[in-house]
């Protein structure tokens, strides 16, 4: 197990290094450097030089690159250009919000999606095509709805017309009920986006497993149908579901940016948009890196869970 983890981590190092390098040099592609924007036309040559020095832009590129790598290892991303606040701290404040929303979404989405997908698969297997088709169609429609549009519709209905749920306000961890109400709409929007994908893969893989020979064996030895689904089908279908849910995490992160923006939730997505609007490139670069690290981490975790579930894989 530890051996495997080490091996996996070793495999990831080139990718992570590539990600970090790509982000570093991509930002340098921007014509001029950040200071020329910040400085505008108002600063004298010396003032600009001073600013460059403060931002570490006065040394050769390779040294900037090394400083930057070392900084990442220490979770030190420098300071924002506009307000001069430490970026690491800003991210640490915003990350829990995003993380909580993402985690709850995965939980809700998996519960609902696996149930619906299994029902659809079971119906299809039994030849009850109508239930299957209705569920499949709903999944497709929900999946294709632009998330920001869905968010606005929800807001229109639940906030503006019915007044049931708030769409703005502070995020307060000490007030669970208020918190839940506050993040209810974003959670619904994000979950709907995830449910379709997971439900679809659940349907496909459960249906596939239901046609396997060992399911027939179980039935031929008198195992009731429902028990077959729970004991054999879901257990065997779990692996592709986990994989797809892991890959879908990328889409979930995409979605958090949009929902945070719409529902003004102070997560890292909002931080990112703010960074872009104020052209604070070191902030943008750091936040995108954090997103990428999160994604890599989740993929690695799904890989581990997958391996854990499959007895054929030896660590």
């Amino acid at each position: 197990m530890a051996d495997y983890l080490l091996k996996k981590a070793a495999q990831l190092i080139p990718t992570i290094l590539g990600v970090v390098t790509l982000v570093f040099f991509a930002i340098r592609l921007i014509p001029g450097d950040s200071t020329s924007y910040m400085a505008g036309d108002n600063l004298s040559g010396e003032a600009v030089d001073a600013l460059r020095e403060r931002m570490g832009l006065d040394v050769p590129v390779w040294q900037q690159y090394l400083d930057y790598l070392l900084g990442i290892l220490k979770f030190d991303f420098g300071t924002t250009m506009v307000s001069g606040l430490p970026i690491g701290q800003l991210i640490m404040e915003a990350l829990p919000v995003t993380f909580m929303i993402a985690f709850l979404t995965v939980l809700i989405a998996c519960l609902i999606a696996v149930t619906l997908g299994t029902i659809a698969a079971f119906s299809a297997h039994k030849g009850k095509k109508l239930i299957d088709q209705v569920l499949t169609w709903i999944a497709m429609l929900v999946d294709l709805m632009p998330s920001f549009w869905m968010a606005l519709l929800m807001m229109l209905v639940f906030t503006l017309s019915l007044g049931w749920l708030p769409a703005s306000g502070p995020i307060d961890f000490s007030d669970p009920v208020g918190l839940l109400q506050r993040i209810a709409l974003p959670l619904i929007v994000l979950s709907l986006g995830q449910i379709a994908t997971i439900a679809r893969i659940t349907r496909t893989s459960v249906l596939e497993v239901l046609n396997e020979d060992y399911i027939r064996t179980a039935r031929a030895f008198g195992t009731p149908q429902l028990l077959v689904v729970f004991r054999h089908a879901l257990k065997n279908a779990a692996m592709p579901i986990i994989t797809v849910a892991g890959l879908g995490f990328g889409n979930l992160l995409n979605g958090t940016v949009i929902t945070e923006f719409i529902f003004s939730i102070p997560g890292i997505g909002t931080l990112l948009i703010g960074g872009i609007n104020s052209r604070d490139y070191s902030l943008v670069q750091s936040v995108i890196l954090v997103y990428s690290f999160l994604f890599i981490l989740v993929n690695m975790m799904t890989d581990l869970i997958y391996k854990y579930f499959d007895p054929r894989v030896k660590f």
Binding site: D213, Y214, R216, T217, A220, F221, H232, K235, D310, P311
Partner: peptide, 14 residues
């Protein structure tokens, strides 16, 4: 009952 393909007739994760 005994089935044709022993490779696929037993549940692989049990």
């Amino acid at each position: 009952t005994v089935f044709q393909d022993p490779m696929t007739s037993l549940d692989p994760v049990m």
